[in-house]
Structure formats: C-alpha cells, structure tokens
Computed example of a mutant assay.
Amino acid sequence: MTRAGVLKLGFGLLLAGGLGYWLFQALGLEGFSAGIAAEALLIVVVLVWTSSYLFRVVTGRMTYMQQRRRYRSGYDDLTAQQLQERFDAMTPEQQQALMASIAEEESSQAAD
C-alpha cells in the first residue's frame, strides 16, 4: 500500500468514526455512549483488518509473495528453455564433451 493509500485509509477511518458517532446519536444513544459505541465499532474494524492481514502473511497469500512465485516459475521455465536451445545448437562432439565434463564434476563432488 502506498503512503497516499495509507493516508486515505486513515482519513476514511476518521470519517467513519465521526459518522458512527452521529449514527449512534441518531439511534438514541447519548453523547458519551455514542462515542464509546463508535470507538468500539472502529476497534472491531481495525482488529478484523489486522487479523486478515496476519492471516495472509501466515498463509503466504500476500501480493508480493504471489508475484515473486510467478516470476520465479516463469524465470525457471525460461532458463530451462534457453539451456535446451543452447545444448541443441551444439555439435554432437561439443554435447559429448559437455556431458563428460558434467559427469567428471559429479564424480569429483561425490568423492569429496
């Protein structure tokens, strides 16, 4: 969320509190009771919003995390395609030399 979005949200909550106060007064509550009721309603709204945010964090459903997963899966697919194209463009001798080099490297790592 951008700074402007946060400011708009804060201003909206301030307005909602004021409107809630007038609404509770119109429903018959006196000034002090209307203020407490409006404040309680805003606290419930903020707690529900915060808990929904925490739920998204815990389950990994945040926008950034979803974008990152999509990027990585796309990048991995693209990389595999590019590697396959480069391998196919090699001569059979170069392919065999590469495969021998990989096998040699794997065997040296297994020996360590």
Score class of each variant (00 low, 15 high):
residue 3 R to I: 02
residue 3 R to D: 08
residue 6 V to S: 02
residue 7 L to H: 07
residue 8 K to C: 10
residue 9 L to A: 12
residue 11 F to A: 13
residue 11 F to P: 00
residue 12 G to S: 09
residue 12 G to R: 05
residue 12 G to D: 11
residue 13 L to R: 02
residue 13 L to G: 03
residue 14 L to E: 05
residue 14 L to Y: 12
residue 15 L to F: 03
residue 16 A to M: 13
residue 16 A to S: 11
residue 17 G to W: 11
residue 17 G to V: 04
residue 17 G to H: 07
residue 18 G to D: 02
residue 18 G to F: 09
residue 18 G to C: 04
residue 18 G to Y: 10
residue 19 L to H: 00
residue 19 L to E: 10
residue 19 L to C: 06
residue 20 G to P: 03
residue 20 G to F: 00
residue 20 G to S: 05
residue 21 Y to I: 02
residue 22 W to H: 15
residue 23 L to S: 14
residue 23 L to N: 14
residue 24 F to Q: 06
residue 24 F to A: 09
residue 25 Q to E: 14
residue 25 Q to D: 08
residue 29 L to E: 13
residue 29 L to V: 08
residue 30 E to S: 06
residue 32 F to R: 06
residue 32 F to D: 08
residue 32 F to A: 13
residue 34 A to N: 06
residue 35 G to L: 09
residue 35 G to Y: 03
residue 37 A to E: 01
residue 37 A to L: 04
residue 38 A to P: 00
residue 38 A to Q: 00
residue 38 A to T: 00
residue 38 A to L: 03
residue 38 A to R: 00
residue 41 L to C: 08
residue 42 L to V: 04
residue 42 L to E: 01
residue 43 I to Q: 05
residue 44 V to A: 15
residue 44 V to C: 10
residue 46 V to D: 02
residue 47 L to E: 03
residue 48 V to Y: 06
residue 50 T to K: 06
residue 50 T to A: 10
residue 51 S to R: 11
residue 52 S to Y: 02
residue 52 S to M: 05
residue 52 S to I: 03
residue 53 Y to C: 05
residue 53 Y to A: 04
residue 54 L to P: 01
residue 55 F to P: 00
residue 57 V to D: 01
residue 57 V to N: 01
residue 58 V to T: 14
residue 58 V to Q: 10
residue 60 G to A: 06
residue 61 R to N: 08
residue 62 M to W: 06
residue 63 T to V: 13
residue 63 T to E: 09
residue 64 Y to C: 02
residue 64 Y to H: 08
residue 65 M to P: 00
residue 65 M to E: 15
residue 66 Q to M: 14
residue 67 Q to N: 12
residue 67 Q to A: 11
residue 67 Q to K: 15
residue 68 R to I: 02
residue 68 R to F: 04
residue 70 R to S: 15
residue 71 Y to E: 08
residue 71 Y to Q: 04
residue 71 Y to P: 00
residue 72 R to G: 03
residue 73 S to C: 07
residue 73 S to F: 07
residue 74 G to E: 14
residue 75 Y to F: 05
residue 76 D to W: 08
residue 77 D to F: 13
residue 77 D to S: 15
residue 77 D to V: 12
residue 77 D to H: 15
residue 79 T to I: 05
residue 79 T to Q: 10
residue 80 A to F: 11
residue 80 A to R: 12
residue 81 Q to I: 05
residue 82 Q to A: 14
residue 83 L to F: 06
residue 85 E to R: 15
residue 86 R to N: 07
residue 86 R to A: 10
residue 86 R to H: 15
residue 87 F to R: 10
residue 87 F to V: 09
residue 87 F to I: 04
residue 88 D to C: 03
residue 90 M to G: 05
residue 91 T to H: 09
residue 92 P to T: 00
residue 94 Q to N: 08
residue 94 Q to C: 07
residue 97 A to P: 00
residue 97 A to Q: 05
residue 97 A to M: 10
residue 99 M to L: 14
residue 100 A to N: 13
residue 102 I to H: 09
residue 104 E to C: 01
residue 107 S to L: 11
residue 107 S to H: 07
residue 109 Q to R: 15
residue 110 A to D: 10
residue 111 A to N: 04
